[in-house]
Every structure is written in C-alpha cells, then in structure tokens.
Design a protein around this nucleic acid. Sequence first.
DNA 1: AATCAATACTTGACGAAGGAAATTATTGAG
DNA 2: CTCAATAATTTCCTTCGTCAAGTATTGATT
Lengths: 384, 384
Amino acid sequence: MFAEPETTAPAMTAVLAAVLTGGPLSRVALARRLGLSQAAITRAAQPLIKRGYLRELAATERSGPGAGRPASPLAIRPDREFFLGVKITADELIGVVCDLGARVRAAARRPLTGTDVEHVLTELGALVDELLDGPGNLRARTRRLGLAVSGDVHRPTGLVRYSPFLRWHDVALQQRAEQLTGLAVTVENDVKALTIAEHWFGDGAGAESFALVTVGTGIGCGLVVDGKLVSGAHGVAGEIGHLGVDVNGPPCHCGGRGCVEAIAGTDAIVGRARERSGRPDLTFDDAVALARSGNVRINAVFAEAGLAIGCGLAAVANLVGPARIVVSGEGLAAYDLFDEHIRTGFERQAFGAAATCPLTIRPLPFEQWARGAATVSIQTFVTS
Amino acid sequence: MFAEPETTAPAMTAVLAAVLTGGPLSRVALARRLGLSQAAITRAAQPLIKRGYLRELAATERSGPGAGRPASPLAIRPDREFFLGVKITADELIGVVCDLGARVRAAARRPLTGTDVEHVLTELGALVDELLDGPGNLRARTRRLGLAVSGDVHRPTGLVRYSPFLRWHDVALQQRAEQLTGLAVTVENDVKALTIAEHWFGDGAGAESFALVTVGTGIGCGLVVDGKLVSGAHGVAGEIGHLGVDVNGPPCHCGGRGCVEAIAGTDAIVGRARERSGRPDLTFDDAVALARSGNVRINAVFAEAGLAIGCGLAAVANLVGPARIVVSGEGLAAYDLFDEHIRTGFERQAFGAAATCPLTIRPLPFEQWARGAATVSIQTFVTS
DNA sequence: AATCAATACTTGACGAAGGAAATTATTGAG
DNA sequence: CTCAATAATTTCCTTCGTCAAGTATTGATT
C-alpha cells in the first residue's frame, strides 16, 4: 500500500489482513483481536475505507441485555482490486483471476509442450492476456500476479533455485515475468502458496498454527507456526513425505526406508497394486476401480497408504501441534478409499490432546493451486 | 527491568539478550544483528551499563586493511545478579544458583520422601536457604527463582495443571513458592526449561530455530522455531517420543504402535533386553554392561533404539528444519552404545539438506535440569 | 418524552521508540 | 599532520499507538 500522510501503516496491514481472513469485524472486535486500542483501529481503518478496500456494513442488531450503540462492522470490498495467480506444472499452466476476497472470477488453462523457460514465459504471457482481456474488464483493476512453482523458490527475489519437475536451475522468474506482463510478480513454492491460501481464506483462517498436507505423486506439507510459514534453517521443512513410519518398509528413492511417500505416494500405490494384482500395466485409476469393486488385496494397499499418511499427520500434530490440519491433493481423488484409514492412523499415533486436532480431508480442485498463487500476490499486496 | 525515563525498553531487552547469548559484541555488531540503528543500541546500552549489567571491554585490535576507531565490545557482568533454579523430581530436589551468564555458582540436592505439595514446599524452602546462605553471600544479589517440573505447566500463571510423576493437579506453585521464599518465581515445564537453557547458553545459542531431545524413561523434545518455543495449539508439542517409526512395532502405553519411546525409552530397552536375554530381573545398567561386553542380542536392542531415535530426529529435521539438534538425557549415560546408531537412523531418514543439520549427542549432567530452571528465571528477568 | 446506562466510535494531546544524519572519537596509512 | 575508515554519540524528527475525554446511537426506565 502507498504510504500517505496521517496514516499508520503497520496497523493498516493488520486490520486489512484481519478483515480479510476473519470476515466482517467491528472496530472493537478488531481492537481486541489485534491487541490494539480502538483509537488505533479507527485511524487505520479510515484510509482503507477512503481508498475503497473496506466498507462499513449496516449496524447489526444488538445482542446483550443492556443497550449501546450498535457496531458497524468493517467488510472488504472484494471488487476493489483483482489478483492473478498461475500455477506452473510440467505440462500446463493453470491461471485464475481472484478478487481481494480470493474468490475466483476467471480461470483458464494452457497446455505446455515443454518446460524450457522461454516457452513457458511465452505461454504465460498469452494466458495472462487471455484472462485479463476476457469478460469483465479485469485488466484495469489488476496489478499483481502470483506464480506457484514446485521446487526450491526464493520468494524475496523471485528466483527459482531448482525445480526438478520443470528442470529449472536459477531462473529469475519474477524479473522475467514482470518484464513480460508489466505486473508486480511474486513467486512462491506451490505447496507454500496453497498453505497460505488455506491459512488466509480456507479452513485454517484465523488459526495461529496450521498444517496443510498434499497427497499426490509427492507428499508435501506446509506448516504455519505462530502465524508464520515455517521454512527450515537448511531450506527443508514440511517434508512429511519422507518421515519414516516403517523401519522395515520399502526403500524410498530418497535413500530412506518406509517413508510415507514410498507407501502412500501415487507412484508407490500403483507399484504396490501392480505387484499384488500381478498386472504390470495397472494404472492408478485401475487400482482405484479395483479397490472400489471390493478387491481385498488392492484395498489393503490403500489402507496401508492411508495409515501411513495418518501416521505422518500424527507426527505433525505431536511435534508442532497445529490448531488444525487440512489434507488435500490430487491423490485424494480416491478420497473415499483413504479417509477412514487416514483417521485411523492419525488417532492411533496422535498423543494425548494432539488427537483432538481437527482433521479436514478433502480433495481440492486443481484450480486451487492457481488460487494459492493468487493468494500469495494478495498477501504481498496487503503486507507491503 | 524497571522502566526509567529516557529509555527504550524493547531495545534494552534485545541488547541484553543478544549479549547474553552471543558473547561480547560491539554496538555496530549488535545493530546489524538486531536490525536496529547504531543510535538505538547506544541508547539501549547506556542504562544497562549504568545499572551494572553490561560493561565495555577494552578495544580489540582492528581487522580490516584500513583503519577506523576500534570497537569496544559490550560484555555482561555475570556477578551483577544471581538466579536460583530448582528441578523438582519425584524423589529429590536439585537446586543451583547461577550467575547472569548461567554459570553454576552453587549446587545442592535434597531428597524427598513424598511428592505431596506441602512436603515439597517445605524442602524447597530449606534448599533455597541452604543455597543462599552458603558461601559467597548470594542472598543479597538473588531475587528470582525458576522451578522446573515435568508435566503440563502454565507458565504465565505458574500453575502446574497436571504432573503425572508428582501426581499433582492444579497446584498454584508460583504463588506458593513466592509466599514461601519471597523471591519472584517462574514455573516452567522441565523439557522446555532445558530447551531454553540450551537455546540461550548452550549449543543452540544464537540459532533462530533449534531442537532439544531428551532421552530417558520418556523421550521428549523442546522445539524453538523463529526464536520462540513451540507450544502447540492443543497444548501438545515436541512429543517426539510418540512418533510412530514402525507400524508393526511394539504397542506403546499411549495406544500407538512402534512409538520411539516404546523402542528407545529406558523402560522399553530394559523390557526388550529381559526378553532377549531371558533374565527377567535385568536392570538397565545390566543391559548396558552386557552390551558393552559384546553381547550381540543386547547390542541389537540398543542399535534398534538408536535407530528409532535417529528416525525421530530426522522427523524433526524434515518437518521443522531446526538449525541444530541437541540430544541429551539420562538415557545417554550409555552414550557410546547409542551414538553411532542415532546418526545412522538420522542420516537414513533425513531428507536432502535436512541431513546437514548438525547433531550434538551428549549426555548432560543431571544438574543441567536445575540450570535450565535458573535460565528460565534469567529469561523472565531479561524479557520483563 | 426525558433521562440513563451501555456500548461503539472519534478526536486531541502525549509519550515511547527508533531512524537519519551530522558530530565526535580513535585508529592506521601515507 | 592529514586523510580515510570505522565506531560511538548526539540532535532532531517521524511514526506509531496509547490514554482520556468526548460524541454517537441504542434499549430500558422513569
């Protein structure tokens, strides 16, 4: 946000973020929640209202026994500004335009024929134009773009240090994308982006600590502790996929044994299903179909996978104790085969009160990854 | 610290804490490290020097090629104030007096004949008097007492909610101890206290994130992320002892299977050693002796235990990525039997760069628990 | 209707915290 | 002896947010 005379930038950020993630809130409620005086809230809210980011709702009916002036809650004006988000995968670009409230207003995809930087950037430019020049005249109110990439991303500089899937090394993605689109670009790791999205606008909204676990070929985890995304001193964090849950389990490509990913990653599931069915050409969908049709052996594969995931979740709950955990990812397309076993594993290994940590197991539409990217640019906007 | 006209309390706290944990530091170095201006450091340091907590060291020799005024590093004056720390176990009290630099100046123990609150308090009073009235006239410069108790402790109020070992429920320990001793009392969980001690004064000094693991009957873990002790939204955190590392492993009293504690806790080790040796009266020390004498079966018990611990450490490294990990506890009296296996397990399951996380495996003298308690009171003092 | 208590919000005065930049201090090198 | 380099201090100023007093708006009570 632009600084202006007579403003209090930190409080403005806090107020905007709180209203964004916590729904309409009266100034008194904000003061309590943020630990600030009412005066500070009033002063911070004024410029936000004036610039069109917040508006005052009609007074709500009183609650208590006595009387008192009714509160006029502050709500965001989602239309005020739009944010682009694009998830870059190895074979396509998935893009969305979100409003300030992170609701998707437009979406589009674009296949990729390769992952070399120039090609991806060309397609990215085309995708952005397609989205912004579509219905709704979005371009006029869109100034920011978030990009989500799997791998090692340095967000402050927007450098993609290393992305195995894309086979990128040290790509200055932010700089390139800004030149290309003229938008302010933020680059973030895809799992982190999704975590931020769920933490701000999803099931983790308002929680001080939170974990998001994605299940797919890889099994990843974003961790929020004390309101901050955990990054790890050595650049590794949330690697739930390589927790060892079975000392005698199958070897993992990482060199470990019995890693969650080696039991519950989609590749691992396919591999185990092939072994046990004796059909070397079985696909993941085949395995799902067999399991659903009641094949005991294949069902066991999913049960073991669910158990391993649940065990991993319990590890997160036992170690960092998030307020809640959301499980998602393309692997959960077979949600029905996992759900029960994940919960069983979790309840078995979660220690004491950790077992009370609410678990949301829910497949997210793939578009959510792009929404996560957009959320990152919303976050950049709000906290800047 | 008492606020005084013309001071900047937050910076004072930051400066004192930085000098405490980071050795002598020049004002410029402090400014860089704390992200403050040199002016702020000067202002914060002045009252600390005046009140005797810091002193200026002689100028050090210059380093670079050019010239420049030599820095005069700030160092703490450890003698300025002393801090009591007492660890309360089920059968004895262990007390120390530390100086501001957390060096132990006096130590004493007192056996307990029971764990009922009145008895423990009586003995605590006697221990405190013994320590303060001993040589060195410590009483005059001691105003604070830290208490370390295993179990669920609410530090802000000093309430012991539940301590299984002591069989205490909702004991207002801080209040009782303050009435008894006239000192300002802080109560903290024992593992957390030890973690704070190692984070401020031990191997974790200066690290933004850090983990301490204690191995004994129970296996616990204190976690520091972003400079703050992790507490867990549901009151559970650092429960490394109940991570499941073997889905087919032995059942644990917690209801899980293959928990680290069920494989590597001292009770578990004794149990497994009895099984495999066929001697139902074997003690832990016996097992250690047998293993050292080359008994293959018993050695395997320790190897499996070490592997499980290493696996648990890897889980910590993979999930939160601390800058370093310290392993300690009375179980490590048999340090030599564990060390190698712990490292093997860690290296096998630590993912990518997480494996570079430095591991310190080191038995700590039992007195360290009391020092941890004293450290907590130092922390309370510095940050108050 | 007038008043009162209760609650929400606003305003003005003030103080705490720390930054920027000029100033002083102290060294080695030429 | 001067200059460049670095360290510490001082002065002045901005930012941020609190406190306390006031305004606004309601339901209940007289």
